[in-house]
Structures are given as structure tokens and as C-alpha cells.
């Protein structure tokens, strides 16, 4: 029993730092990418043919942004963004530096997820709002987003879990975090115990995020 306790406590400091770094990277990049990703997704949907702000050119540009960024593997994107990261925060190494490529990768991801969620909203409901004299802005803020909220929450949950995965790759630029610990200690130094511990923590983290997302979506879903 004592041994088990000692076993758990042993790397606690290291792992705790890792958890904090993971939360920091994923949290900030989630917040910023949601801020940009939602308008991007909304923009793609409403400029589509037959939609409330139909505009084929803007639609093409926004779709292209999503497709181009999404087709670049994260590790490549991270390296390619080094000059941009350095320009933004004066360094390209470390936890904060990792937030930049994580955010850039997440924006189109969220954009696509928002697009899919908004398309689930029944066209009849949008029409009803139009018939009542709603402006496009009112339709977006009072109909499209609230009606698709449960689905958006589930989409953002997927994004958060994807970012937890990406943040491990960001270890390559010294980002820290749980994934980085697993690679450095487990792979490079053959410390299997630490690796197993990080993997368990990652599983708990991902499971926790998913459970919370499901719960929130369910609570908000009245359909």
C-alpha cells in the first residue's frame, strides 16, 4: 500500500506541470480558434447559394481557406508557421509558442464543424424568421446559432480532443504538456512507468472532456 502511494506520488510534480501545460495550450487555442472559427463557419454557410447572404466569391474564398489549412498535416503546419510565431510572440519555442500553430490548425477545423452544425438547422425555421422580417444578423444570432448550439458543443468537444492530440506533437518545438512528457520520458529515455502514467492521464482527460461535452449538449438540447 505504501509502495503504491509512493509509486503514484513519485512523478507527481512532473506530471502536474504537464497537465497544466496541456490545459494552457488547449484552453487558449480553443478560445481563440472558437472566436475565429465560428464566424468562418457561419460565413461559409450564409454565403452559400440560396442562403441568406448568398455570395459565390466570399463563399469560395472561405471554403478555400478551410480546405487549404486542413489539408496541411499539423507537424508541417507547425514548422511552416515558425516565422509567423516568432513575429507574433518573439519566440518559436515553448508552450506559448505552441499555441499559435494549434490555434491556426483549429480555426478551419472549427469552421468546418460549425458549417456542418448550422446546416442541420431546418430551412423552414429560417424561412419563418425571414417571413417575420428578421435581418440576416438576427437570423444568425437568434436562429442559426441558438438552434444548433447542442450540435456546436459536441463539435467543439471533438475539437478540444483533437487539440489535446495535436499538443503532444507540439512537444517537437518544446511545448511541454502531457504528450511531450510521454515522448521524452517514455520513448527517448525508456521510462515506461512515466509513459504509462501519462497515457492514463490523457485517457482520463479525454474521457472527461467528452463526458462534459455530452452532458452540456444534452442539457441544452430541447428538440
Amino acid at each position: 500500500m505504501k509502495n503504491l502511494l509512493a509509486f503514484i506520488i513519485k512523478d507527481l510534480g512532473l506530471l502536474w506541470t504537464g497537465i497544466q501545460q496541456t490545459f494552457y495550450m488547449v484552453g487558449i487555442s480553443m478560445a481563440i480558434s472558437t472566436l475565429f472559427g465560428i464566424p468562418l463557419g457561419v460565413g461559409v454557410v450564409v454565403t452559400e447559394e440560396g442562403n441568406i447572404l448568398e455570395n459565390k466569391y466570399i463563399n469560395f474564398i472561405l471554403s478555400a481557406i478551410i480546405n487549404v489549412v486542413r489539408s496541411i498535416p499539423f507537424i508541417v503546419l507547425m514548422v511552416a508557421l515558425i516565422p509567423f510565431t516568432r513575429f507574433l510572440i518573439n519566440t518559436s519555442i515553448g508552450t506559448t509558442a505552441a499555441v499559435v500553430p494549434l490555434t491556426i490548425a483549429a480555426i478551419p477545423f472549427i469552421g468546418r464543424i460549425v458549417e456542418n452544425s448550422l446546416k442541420e438547422v431546418d430551412n423552414g425555421v429560417i424561412e419563418a424568421a425571414q417571413a417575420m422580417g428578421a435581418t440576416p444578423w438576427e437570423i444568425i444570432t437568434k436562429v442559426l446559432l441558438p438552434e444548433s448550439l447542442p450540435s456546436l458543443i459536441l463539435g467543439l468537444t471533438i475539437t478540444a480532443i483533437t487539440l489535446i492530440g495535436f499538443s503532444a506533437i507540439a512537444g517537437a518545438i518544446g511545448a511541454g504538456g502531457l504528450g511531450d512528457i510521454a515522448v521524452r520520458y517514455g520513448y527517448h529515455r525508456f521510462e515506461t512507468v512515466i509513459m504509462v502514467k501519462t497515457v492514463i492521464l490523457l485517457i482520463i482527460l479525454v474521457q472527461g472532456v467528452q463526458t462534459f461535452g455530452n452532458w452540456l449538449a444534452n442539457t441544452l438540447d430541447h428538440s
Partner: peptide
């Protein structure tokens, strides 16, 4: 206007 499928906001 009213509709066949009511078109109410579920949220």
C-alpha cells in the same frame, strides 16, 4: 405566416 411543419424554434 403559419406553416405546415410549424417551424418553431426548438431552442
Amino acid at each position: 405566416m403559419i406553416f405546415q411543419n410549424f417551424n418553431l424554434l426548438n431552442s
